[in-house]
């Protein structure tokens, strides 16, 4: 269940985009799973359907979801790549930190654990 923070400065559509992205990246919403329709999500949150529409459009443009005419929106399988890219970027950052620590004389070793999806 998504929740909107009305005291937040962020526009509602942006909050929706961020929250849905998190659900997708965390695999709560799975690849090819059908999203709630614009109408359903708008009713559930009692918000303007145009706001939900806008959020879905952004998610589609960024490759998180795809839509099938007459059927609705689904989680895109591109999310696998998106997640991989995110992991790579974060690992690069981590390596930089490790490198900096090394220069300070602290030696850190990083081993991916089984089941952490980095393989």
């Amino acid at each position: 269940m998504l929740q909107i923070d009305y005291s937040s400065r962020a526009p509602i559509y942006e909050q929706l985009v961020d929250k849905i992205k998190t659900l997708i990246v965390k695999n709560v919403l799975k690849v090819n799973e059908q999203m709630l329709t614009v109408r359903e999500l708008a009713s559930q949150l009692t918000i303007n359907p145009n706001t939900v529409q806008r959020a879905y459009r952004i998610l589609e443009e960024e490759g998180y979801i795809y839509s099938v005419t007459g059927k609705g929106s689904f989680v895109s399988d591109k999310i696998v790549n998106i997640r991989e890219d995110q992991v790579k970027t974060e690992l690069v950052k981590l390596n930089q930190v490790i490198e900096r620590l090394k220069n300070l004389g602290v030696y850190v070793e990083y081993k991916p654990k089984k089941g952490d999806d980095t393989q």
Partner: peptide
């Protein structure tokens, strides 16, 4: 109130 909004949402979306 909730019923009213849901019908409005429905008609705007559909």
């Amino acid at each position: 109130r909730k019923k009213l909004w849901n019908i409005v949402i429905d008609d705007v979306a559909k």
